[in-house]
Design a protein around this nucleic acid. Sequence first.
RNA 1: GGGGAUGUAGCUCAGUUGGGAGAGCGCGGCGUUCGCAACGCCGAGGUCGAGGGUUCGAGUCCCUUCAUCUCCA
Length: 875
Amino acid sequence: MTGNDVRRKFLEYFEKHHHQIVRSSSLVPHDDPTLLFVNAGMVQFKRLFLGEEKRGYSRATTSQKCVRAGGKHNDLENVGYTARHHTFFEMLGNFSFGDYFKEKAVDFGWDLLTNGYGLPADKLWVSIFLDDDEAAEIWHRQIGVPEDRIVRFGEEDNFWAMGDTGPCGPCSEIHLDRGEAYGCGKPDCALGCECDRFLEIWNLVFMQFNRDASGEMTPLPKPSIDTGLGLERMVSILQDVPTNYDIDLIVPIIERAEALSGIGRNASHEAEVAMKVIADHSRAAAFLIGDGILPSNEGRGYVLRRIMRRAIRYGRNIGLTKPFLHETATVVFDVMKPEYPELAEAEAFITNVIQNEELRFSETIDYGLKLLNETLDEMKVRGETVVPGDVVFKLYDTYGFPVDIVQDVVRDQALGVDMDGFNVAMDRQREQSRQVSSFDEISDAFRTLTADGFKAEFRGYDGIEAESKVVLLVSDGTEVTEADTGAAVDVVAEVTPFYGESGGQVGDVGTIAGPQGKVDVTDTVKDPTGLIIHKGRVVEGALRTGDAITLSVDEDKRRATQLNHTATHILHAMLRKVLGDHVKQAGSLVAPDRLRFDFTHFSQVTPEELDRIEWLVNERIRENAPVTIDEMDAEDAFQSGATALFEEKYGDRVRVISLADFSKELCGGTHTDRTGNIGLFKIISESSVASGVRRLEAITGNAAVEQMQHTHHIVRDAARMLKDTPDSLLQKLEGVIAGQKSQEKEIERLKAKIVGLQADDTADTIQKVNGVSLLVKRVAVDTPGALRDLADRYRDKLKSGVIVLGSAVDSKVLLIAVVTKDLTDRFHAGNIVKSIAPVVGGGGGGRPDMAQAGGSKPENLDQALKKAEELLSGD
RNA sequence: GGGGAUGUAGCUCAGUUGGGAGAGCGCGGCGUUCGCAACGCCGAGGUCGAGGGUUCGAGUCCCUUCAUCUCCA
């Protein structure tokens, strides 16, 4: 049975038992800021379990993409060294939302394992929570598992909780005894042993309590089921192979690594580890990038970067010094194509991103090697043989140069590394970073409201005004019953026409009028549960909870925003048409005054392409296509080929926005009703955001017309100033610039000439003191540079001597002292200016042969020069 | 969220108590050559990331800010 068969069989089994097959959600969790990546099957159903969300089914089954790296669950450092750790894996699961409970869950699990997958019932063990007698009863009486194969474990192993508070409950795990051959051989080897004999394969969570802040647990009215069966692990059992890395979903990746390196995975322990790391990380990288994450220096992108770099580093251990990860990732597409066709579609983009990262990392390594070698050279000069730990740490911490590569290099040169020192520095850094991190907390008031089942109704698709009632007022993060004039306030209403910021479209602005007061709404946001919060300030009277209110959206701004939003959809479609199907939306901002669109593309969009895109978008606008909006089931929408975005969350009912036959997108935003309303579309900039992602900014409607007029005025006025027509403006400007250049040159030449003339006029001022030529003179130049030039000329003339020049410019004084090289042992230019500069109220300094100074008392310049003469004569 | 580093010519970078903005490669012109490569000579190209401060004077010191890199959480 292939891995893909195992997955299919699971989903089909539960579909047969009236479960909705739900597609895997993106690896990026949409509404959970505390979670870096989706790491379990239940994540996308969290709000269903909490009762905050309802969907059209009460039973579901999924094969969920999961990543465990970088967050609370971090298996990154284990991958390669164990049989079953992954950063990326798939979790099969069946879920009941207040439908069936323990009995059926146990029944399904056992039936599928024994009858479906054909596992021997007498090799299956079951663990349950200490006092969950109900579960024990079901397993023993209903299923017939002998009592000696039912084991009770404590809270650590068999009690599950979503967090410190919320739904929780006991769980029950099904284990498989693979026989002594897989065991550690110890006499006390039994279920729970760390070895590979007893494999935990399926975890059934019985969600039956709700735990409050005080720790008290109350029974849930509708208990639920959440189960998790690791696909890779299950496949390894059914294919009867020793590790997850021997299954047909992964072996092809390893085989590619073997082919590329020319080394077999069994060649050495090192090779074995490297192959596993490469196989796992290739999968993680392919899927993470496929879900829209790009390598970066923070957050999710940084975790992705670390995963890729870890793979590259291990690749070096088996001689893969050139970029290879994009090749092993290609195998991932082939293997996973049946279940994840969208991954294969993005192949070009994903491999490109990986290759870029490989090149970037090799730059990091090259630079680190350079720094390391410099350090080693210095050490050798000093006769040291151990690289200090803080040096290694600095290379790692600041330049990202991996420690194991330091060790390789150092070993080759028969030197040592102070790893203890490194670890001390590392621990210090950890300690330092572990200071409590405070992240934005959603006010408790909002949370309570949502938990009580309140749902604000959005009525802004059809109108911009609504009558409603104040449900909640929050000021300074705490709930209030009244907000007075001047107070900043967050308002929640029963119904609202205000669009809360989401999907790139900014929140509406407008006013809320109550019986005794008015609030200016400056922004509208949507919290993760969909609660619409109006943010504003009371500008008149006061607003109280329960007030009847009229909510009015600023019409002009909303309308402008709608034009930009519809234009964004047209732009998206035309980008794909002009640049290719690899173009995918990577971010979007739709504001009243402009739109910004980030998308995946490998190179700069040429000016010609930009023109063509702009032209096509405007053509679509002139077609005046109707904007049709359909609400439908998400599955139907996907089937119909509507474009969905990876960073967006979609419920089961979605809105599909269609523009004639050229655009069909899932979108919750507000749109204009015909493309012709947009009027005019103008691109105003094209830039890069990250490698592989470009950004376009554009304007529409009035803003676009104003922009055109503005630039037209500039050209017209410029032409008028140059007494020319706009068409020949550029030619004219070229001439003007050329003329200016030559004049500047002429000025330079003349200045030099003037300086030369001044320099010629010196005979009378050169004095001979003790055989040394001295020139002390007041001159008329206006910049330090000119003064230097002049001094240089004198020096060239004198061949040997000391020159001190001074010049008064406005309220400032410039001084310079030059000593020819042959005299620097007797005179120090720096000391000369230092001693005379105070006379003009300044200071100065410089090199022995040249020094400058300045001052703010021009009236004392002659006095200062006199002092210089005395100083030099007195030598 | 906390730390470290970098930002100077188209590119790679140098710039040492604060005192003439530089190198190599690339680019343009000329020369040598039948031609090319190579070489020689000449030349263009810089808001020293941005803003503020200290100073007579800031690429250099201080503060703020942006961008990039990097480690930790």
